[in-house]
Design a binder for these strands. Structure first.
Lengths: 97, 97
DNA sequence: ATTATATTTCTAGAAATATGGAAGTAATAT
DNA sequence: ATATTACTTCCATATTTCTAGAAATATAAT
């Protein structure tokens, strides 16, 4: 069972800055959002931001595509949906019985 | 907005042992499960287990009620449901537009 | 009262994470 | 070529978390 993978994703979302990043990327929708734009919104040092983004990329919650000198980030909705499904199935259903 | 609270809950679920604890408690349903039973299932030292449980209690994901010398633990479904709602609302919906 | 069981708190070492400055890399513009 | 912009990687430090043994506490049984 790969609850490990889900735990990792939960852990990454379990940090205010990263959760904010993810939410901003969701707001960005299909267009996503370049790192620099995230930095403007969050007002944190570039190296710190980069660190958080790379963690989310590693667990598959964020995808990045380079566009010239911008690095555009996208929220990986499917991954989050799978995570939500896991939580719902593994952690809620039995309550109804 | 108190995304901080949700981030804390996500962080607590974002640890394999604690996620396992929560899932076991869900399986326990209305009866919950005493700490000792969790320990049997997980096979980790009592102090370690206690540490993880107390963290989940602190963020409201687990409730405990003493029964003689047993301490019975319950999954707080409502809290998890609110967390899931948050994830769904804040992090998914905009995609459809 | 003493003993046994169930669990927590204390303590401390090891490992992981967070943060941000400085230096490095990639892409573009001049 | 070199300067600028947009990032990342490297590094060091501070902080948190994890883990588990040992001691303490709570409840019940003898």
């Amino acid at each position: 069972m790969n609850s490990q993978k889900f735990a990792q994703q939960l852990a990454e979302l379990g940090h205010v800055t990263r959760l904010d990043i993810f939410r901003l990327l969701v707001k960005g929708g299909k267009n996503g959002m370049p790192v620099s734009h995230l930095q403007d919104k969050l007002g944190i040092p570039a190296s710190t931001l980069s660190h958080h983004i790379s963690r989310m990329v590693q667990v598959g919650l964020v995808r990045q595509i380079r566009e010239g000198r911008l690095l555009r980030c996208y929220a990986e909705y499917q991954k989050l949906n799978k995570l939500i499904s896991f939580l719902t199935k593994e952690c809620c259903i039995k309550d109804n019985i």
